[in-house]
Design a protein around this nucleic acid. Structure first.
Lengths: 388, 388
DNA sequence: CCGTATTAGTTTCCGAGTGGAACTTAAGGG
DNA sequence: CCCTTAAGTTCCACTCGGAAACTAATACGG
């Protein structure tokens, strides 16, 4: 169901940007309105360069000059540059075996419409058709980003356990079916990148994102870049051991982080088979059994946070997902877990807890499209890569 | 004691290199002799650019033209470019509370001399003096790299448990005392970087280095860059749990990876308090008790390897250190540990086992100096950093 | 033995892009 | 009002890197 009509704007295709233009656009996207002088300082560019680049970006419709910000002391006031979000529209799609979630955003990843519908079929061809049907309802798209829970390598879905896919060239198929450049990636990876560009982790050099939902997911930003394994895998922390005598996990092991945190396993341990919401109510009402299960889950989450922090010592640990009521009811035990695991002062961990709605998953698909569009990854143009 | 006399060469200071020059030099350093055309292809530069850059680097004495390599089919043969290692000398120093290990290498990190002596004192000033004394024995040094087991941030030793240091500005002190540009870093970090530039991990995009010695150390290369935490910490994997009923670790916990692998803890568990070599002999002779301890250590090592691989899915896992006889006697259990931990096909892990001598630690100090010299980090010149 | 194909390396030239210096603009303050 | 301050712009010289065209060194086939 479409929650808001498409406001119908901007059909111009994405302009070709120089590398510096991309950097400048990105800086404003991530850090909000900035003056030319500020951008020049941050990017270590000369002011003349910024004059030139900003002029080009304004002409291309990507930036607009906003208010002038009066200075505290003397001097000419800054002219703030804003991203002209309305210039482009992006569609994000999150696929689950049951449902398809969609979000249309502008260039700043601000949603302008969301949609949700049952997945008509899990067959790749029909899914592509369904995505194309959704895309058709939003004309003038600049890019599409599709995410799913599987292993994605260069737009190829190598493997998706949930959808039952193997080697599905989804990127090519959706691009063909819609005529819109499309990017595809693992959902947790896309969410991590989205939080790093458009969320509370914006612009950080290092960031760990932990999502708690039906399962647990982890994503890492190191050196300002998303960590993607050499086989396309997102980082797996969730089968680290907490207690070998713990509950049995889907993976066959016992007592790993995942076994404490997977919703299904948690509910299975409770008599009466409640729903997640019911179980939460029990905990809040002081039910001992449910409290124990949630306490253990909280502790396991703390161990996860501590383990992640041990490994990459990030500037921030971002805790997100639909399952964050867990943190609300068990935050003490989360911190116990961190304390028992992290090898330095737990106060060094900047833990940011941001519960979110499920549509955030779809939004991060749009963010993926935006990122791919800006970096040029979506058009697969070969690029000279400098290393250091 | 100096094992080889300094051959006395090359006193020219390090030339100022353009970014492209650095890239080209690095390419030849890491991948060995290459033709201009090959380098141009790898770095996506035009051949004219390579002509220019190579000419400059030859003039600066950093590259030399070697043999021509006849082509398989038709065409003019390639003229191979080699790094002129003799052009520069670097000193690497590894500090332990008891001893100082030194190695002098050429530009290719090939040792030309090694030295080892007791540390006269742990007092920072005296250590600096001792390093300067060592450096004086090798005139014409281009750079010095000092490594130690502590937390190092920007040349400042924030904390070293073993030496008992807090906030020692070692880089500045050694630079002043010797007059030679100096870099300082954590030993495991330097070793990891050294293996990534001059070892079996040369040039890989992602690499995990695990060192087994008195303790366990881990270093990561992701996206071709060394992972350094936001507080200067190297990655800590070693307190991941293996079995909560395991031996007690120095950190106060029980059954973490480190507790199984620390030499002291292993030996403490054996009756008769043998040395490490004696214990190894017992294992080889079939002693059940010692066999059990080494088997558990091997298993823990496997868990560590699996955990690391889960997290960053590297192209290669490099196993090094003085403690690798452990792998020799317990490789089956190492692989059991991997199998029980790694969530994908264990054959995907490219495990490279390279036992090494303790002087490798000093060599990696020299490699640190080389790296710092080439990247310009050693002179702290501000540098425009491009992000993506 | 000699042209021809093939590939490596060089030279010439040009355009893109960048920053320094100087200038203009828009404020605040005596 | 004029001076100071700092943002933004214009001008210009310089650097760098690639396209095109050229030379060099080999294999191969007649």
């Amino acid at each position: 169901m479409i929650s808001e009509a498409d406001t119908g704007v901007a059909t111009s295709s994405w302009p070709r940007l120089s590398e510096v233009s991309r950097d400048v656009l990105l800086e404003v996207l991530i850090h909000g309105p900035l003056s030319r002088a500020e951008i020049a300082g941050r990017l270590r560019l000369s002011r003349p360069t910024l004059t030139r680049v900003a002029k080009a970006l304004v002409q291309q419709g990507l930036l607009v000059e906003g208010d002038t910000r009066p200075r505290a002391s003397a001097g000419r006031p800054s002219e703030m540059l804003h991203v002209r979000g309305a210039a482009h529209r992006f569609l994000g799609v999150k696929l689950t075996p049951q449902r398809l979630f969609a979000a249309v955003t502008d260039l700043t990843a601000t949603p302008v419409a969301t949609a949700e519908e049952p997945l008509r079929s899990c067959a790749p061809d029909e899914v592509v058709t369904q995505i194309a049907d959704v895309a058709r309802r939003f004309p003038g798209l600049t890019g599409i980003g599709v995410t799913l829970g599987g292993v994605v390598l260069d737009g190829l879905v190598a493997w998706d356990e949930f959808l039952g896919w193997t080697d599905v060239p989804l990127k090519a198929a959706v691009t063909r079916a819609t005529g819109v450049p499309t990017a595809v990636d693992n959902d947790v990876q896309a969410l991590t990148a989205a939080q790093h560009w458009f969320g509370p982790g914006a612009g950080l050099k290092s960031l760990a994102v932990i999502t708690v939902g039906a399962g647990v997911g982890t994503g890492l930003i190191v050196d300002g870049r998303l960590v993607a394994g050499s086989h396309g895998l997102p980082p797996h922390f969730s089968h680290t051991l907490v207690d070998a005598k713990g509950p049995q996990c889907g993976c066959g092991r016992r007592g790993c982080i995942s076994s404490y945190l997977m919703t299904q396993v948690m509910l299975r341990r409770l008599a009466g088979r409640p729903t997640y919401e019911e179980a939460l109510d029990w905990v809040r009402a002081g039910d001992r059994e449910a409290g124990q299960v949630f306490a253990e889950a909280g502790y396991a989450l703390g161990v996860l946070i501590g383990t992640v922090a041990n490994v990459i010592d990030p500037q921030k640990v971002l805790l997100t997902g639909e399952g964050l009521p867990l943190y609300e009811v068990s935050s003490d035990l989360v911190h116990d877990g961190i304390e028992d695991t992290y090898e330095d002062d737990p106060d060094l961990i900047d833990l940011d807890v941001r519960p979110f709605d499920f549509t955030e998953w779809a939004r991060s698909g749009a963010a993926l499209a935006i990122k791919a569009t800006i970096t040029g990854a979506i058009s697969e143009r070969p690029h000279r890569d400098r290393r250091r």
